[in-house]
């Protein structure tokens, strides 16, 4: 009876929600990207599944409702994109060019490094979606037959690395323009970077949201063609 319950959505759903809620609380208290809700929440869920000896497959299949909401969430990305579109009118083609180049460059560099280090094909496929916001990356992973969990893990880790290293790296390069920082964070560190950019300034956050949305849409249009060819 109890065992059945542990393997049903009645357990999986509250577990996810409570882990996420605790993650958000912790993130707000600490204010560091290292403790982004997805990092703490996934560790927490893993610990509980491990302790209760629930197979991951069961947890995954009883979370179908959350997976189903990812599609509408991708569509919802159009709203911040529309609200920040005015920035393009002001900063113009340099922004667009950088986003197009960045969308190709970010995955290409990572794939080349992993290839040189001798990574397997499944790793290379999952890496190609590294800089895209997670919901689009997951939708894309399904299309190019990359492993969903690996893709999600790579995307989250990329976001944390980019959001942590981006601001000090740009300061080191002598760049103090919030627009540049925002666009770079949006391209390379997607949602985690955008959250960090919003803490820096509203303009920085808007640029990041714009870059993240355009970069994600663009990658989803181009990557399947490159990989399919």
């Amino acid at each position: 009876m109890i065992v059945d319950l542990l393997h049903s959505p009645l357990f999986a759903l509250p577990l996810s929600i409570i882990a996420f809620w605790l993650g958000v609380l912790l993130y707000r208290r600490s204010g560091t990207v290292l403790l982004h809700p997805i990092v703490t929440a996934s560790l927490l869920v893993f610990a509980i599944l491990y302790a209760l000896e629930i197979p991951y497959r069961d947890y995954q299949s009883s979370s179908a409702l959350l997976y189903a909401l990812l599609g509408p969430a991708v569509v919802a990305l159009a709203i911040p994109l529309k609200q920040n579109l005015a920035i393009i009118r002001r900063a113009g083609w340099p922004l667009l060019v950088t986003i197009v180049v960045g969308a190709l460059l970010a995955p290409a560099i990572a794939v080349v490094i992993a290839f040189l280090l001798g990574a397997g094909e499944s790793v290379l496929l999952a890496l190609s979606g590294k800089s895209i916001t997670t919901p689009i990356a997951l939708a894309l992973a399904e299309k190019i037959h990359a492993a969903l969990s690996l893709t999600a893990g790579i995307v989250v880790f990329t976001g944390v690395v980019g959001a942590l290293a981006g601001p000090p790296l740009l300061r080191g390069l002598g760049i103090r323009d919030d627009r540049i920082l925002g666009v770079v964070l949006g391209i390379n560190a997607h949602a985690v970077g955008t959250a960090r950019a919003l803490e820096i300034s509203a303009l920085c956050g808007a640029c990041a949201a714009l870059a993240m949305g355009l970069c994600g849409a663009l990658s989803a249009l181009i990557l399947p063609l490159i990989i399919g060819a």
């Binding site: 997805i38 869920v45 490094i113 280090l117 397997g120 919901p135 997951l138 969990s149 690996l150």
Partner: peptide, 29 residues
């Protein structure tokens, strides 16, 4: 983050990657 929590948690259960795969992955990212 809640919506892709189930997918992200799966990364801790990956068993079919070799140690060199993990190293290449972390370095590449």
């Amino acid at each position: 983050p809640l919506l892709f929590l189930p997918a992200a948690t799966g990364v801790f259960f990956l068993r079919n990657l070799t140690l060199s795969d993990w190293f290449a992955l972390l370095a590449a990212i």
